[in-house]
Design a protein around this nucleic acid. Sequence first.
RNA 1: CGGGGUAUAGCGCAGCUUGGUAGCGCGUCUGGUUCGGGACCAGAAGGUCAAGGGUUCGAAUCCCUUUACUCCGACCA
Length: 477
Amino acid sequence: MAQIKNESITPRDVDFAKWYTEICRKAELMDYTSMKGFIIYRPYGFAIWENIKKYLDEKFKETGHENVYLPMVIKESLFNKEKEHVEGFAPETLIVTIGGKDKLDDPLIVRPTSEVLFCEHYAKIINSYRDLPKLYNQWCSVVRYEKTTRPFLRGSEFLWQEGHTMHRTKEEAKEEAIKMLNIYDKLGKDVLAIPFIKGQKTEKEKFAGALETYTIEALMHDGQSLQAGTTHFFGDSFARAFDISFLDKDGTRKHPHQSSWGVSTRLIGAIIMVHGDDNGLVLPPPVAPIQVVIVPIRADIDENVRATSKTIYENLKSKGLRVKLDDDTSRSPGWKFAEYEMKGVPIRLEIGPRDLKENKLLMATRYNDEKKFISLDDIDNIPSILDDITKKMYDKAKKFLEEHIHFAKTLEQFEEMIKNGGYVAIPYCGEEACEKKMKELYQVTARAIPFDQKDEEGICPICGKKTHRIVYYARAY
RNA sequence: CGGGGUAUAGCGCAGCUUGGUAGCGCGUCUGGUUCGGGACCAGAAGGUCAAGGGUUCGAAUCCCUUUACUCCGACCA
């Protein structure tokens, strides 16, 4: 159990929301601007995003995707082509109506997502089965004019990647959506140390215009669920609306099938709320802008401390680690300890004259708040210690997740179980009316129909219909 | 978009009820002593009191409008 060392931050269990925003600011991840919902990603926060981006970009390329860049505005008449899509996004679009001094006849919508732009382009470049699949991805920002905003979780503008792909067959497009969901899941395990629930969205919760939406849901420390990423299978509805077709091998003209998928800077919010504690941020090593910080003690008077710190710094750097040597003697060690804990640096090495005489130094690990002596030779093991930290953080989060999944057969059981937060599963009849009822009764939404479920007969506790599926409900961000 | 709360120095706040010279703590800068869990002393800098309007001889303070943040709902990555 981490003892509270930093008195300047609101404890997590006292006021989770306040704790969250304090971390965002005090760990120097972001700052507000005078435009509602538009935030500044400060270097430390942006670096986390860059690390996520780097991992994903490699994975995308490994799986045959190409990066492109499309315009940030979409003219209204183009946007209006796919009915469901428009209805889904219309309430939160930001629209440019003036260019120079002239009022625009066809206003420009600042992209809330780029499906229609991709479709307009695909219509021109897809003519033959040989042109398929098209596997495009775009790194950009999108604008959704939100009514209530929170740093990283919900803003008027956020950074993301959006993959948009076109395929010859329905099966292939659907397979793509599942494949990318699995890449996100792997990102969670390898990079974010966050276990996800993988599943399908209900009719009510799926993306505007999609046939099926798949989701990764993460459980925050306060028991609420966060939709961390989604992938969509569109079928050929957009292709029909945008008149995209190709001549297949058999000589007939067909509409290609489409997928899209995205994760956003919301993942930073997930990292904060899954791993953070009362001393601040706790970063999994793969995303940490600083993985190891070296704090020399009495470096001003001790040549050995100074030289050894430098040697260790160079050594770790040569291993490809992101390491910082903080030899600023105008700050006390105590100040530095608190500072790097607030910033969630996974490993801190304290190098002082006393220990150095015995050829050892202190290693503090952030995620479990432990300090132990290691020998100078152990420095070479730090890369594997960092890997281990990622695994342990994942295991810890997974245990928390598993402890917060329950199964209810009746509404009475549901009511009792949902009080403690987390997910409560009930038999899923598929009726939207039942979902709405659940929301009215318990302020919960259907988060996912998990892929991983037993084929057991159950009865929807709302309408009484028989079913073989279950759905997870939770309060959500 | 509905209901509440907030806005005074970089951060946290007092001052407002009862209008009359802009305050405190932390941080910042300088010098010195310090340095193994947010050190100490001395000195200094830093503010159109969110913005706009009104009342008044005079407004941080009273009135109106707008904006942002925040919490609770409705809507969503």
